[in-house]
Structure formats: structure tokens, C-alpha cells
């Protein structure tokens, strides 16, 4: 079954629900390439249920992530990384060690990391642990 033509394989993968499709991405390189090249998973990248919420606080330096305990396998103890530990240290621990969530959309977070004379804006997906920094803006940040 390993040597199916791409179109035939894509026809099979197309029938899978998002969860199975995400699992199938890990089966082998060829499957991953087809799922990504044809964007089979992107339209439903995210799980359609609430895993937790972020709360911004005035008194804390960062938002807190509230989630119910989940019965994940030991391989995936933390499904959603509320501390955004996947971000590189220099991004998350700057001169001013605080950040908050500015906005969100479809499970993506827009996070603000204030720095001296500038701010780092980062879009990240805590479920998939993918992230990117937005280009710097010339906005002064006023800390309170």
C-alpha cells in the first residue's frame, strides 16, 4: 500500500476527519508532503472545541491560561502550552519580563512583548506551537 499514486492517496486522505488527518501527517514523509502540499489539513487546522481560555491581568506580568485537566498520553502532557514555552527565551524574557494577549482569532494569539523603546508583536498558535514575530513597528510603548 506504500506505493499509491499521489492522486489516489490524496483521494483517500481527503476523506479523513481532521484528527485522523493530523495523525496521518506523521505516518511517513510522502503522506506529510501530500497533506501539506494540498493543504488538506489547513481548513480545519484547529480542534473545534475549547481547550482553555487566556485571562489578561493588570496585577500579573502575563496572562494566565485556564484549562481543564485532560487525560492525554504521557507523550503529550501539555496539549496547549499556556506559558508559550515554545517561544525562544530571548523573545519571551526581554528586559521587561511581561507580556499579554492583545487579540485572538481562530485560535491564534496576538501577543505583545513590551521592550524599551519598542514592542515585539508575536502571532502564535499555542496548540500547534508555531509562531512568528511581526515586523517591528515604530510605536513607543508606554508601560504602566
Amino acid at each position: 500500500m506504500g506505493a499509491l499514486p499521489d492522486n489516489a492517496l490524496a483521494g483517500i486522505l481527503r476523506l479523513l476527519p481532521p484528527r485522523s488527518l493530523a495523525v496521518s501527517r506523521c505516518v511517513c514523509k510522502a503522506w506529510l508532503a501530500i497533506i501539506d502540499a494540498r493543504a488538506l489539513l489547513l481548513p480545519h487546522l484547529l480542534p473545534h472545541s475549547i481547550r482553555g481560555i487566556f485571562l489578561n491581568y493588570v496585577d500579573y506580568h502575563r496572562p494566565h491560561h485556564f484549562t481543564r485537566p485532560s487525560s492525554t498520553s504521557p507523550l503529550f502532557p501539555k496539549v496547549v502550552d499556556g506559558m508559550l514555552d515554545f517561544l525562544p527565551v530571548e523573545t519571551i524574557e526581554g528586559v521587561c519580563d511581561c507580556w499579554w494577549v492583545l487579540d485572538h482569532c481562530n485560535g491564534l494569539l496576538l501577543c505583545d512583548f513590551p521592550r524599551i523603546m519598542r514592542r515585539d508583536l508575536c502571532v502564535c498558535n499555542p496548540a500547534t506551537r508555531r509562531w512568528t514575530l511581526l515586523p517591528h513597528q515604530n510605536t513607543l510603548v508606554i508601560n504602566y
Partner: peptide, 22 residues
């Protein structure tokens, strides 16, 4: 069966969509 390298790659990709394995 996957080679050790393939296995490592599979594990890395599994982390990307951790929610799928709940």
C-alpha cells in the same frame, strides 16, 4: 517498520498537532 531517523521525525511531527492524540 520505520528507521530510527524516521521514528524521530514521526515523533517530532506528532508534537505539532498534539491535540489529535488526546
Amino acid at each position: 517498520d520505520p528507521t530510527p531517523e524516521e521514528q524521530a521525525e514521526m515523533n517530532a511531527h506528532m508534537l505539532e498537532y498534539g491535540w489529535a492524540y488526546e
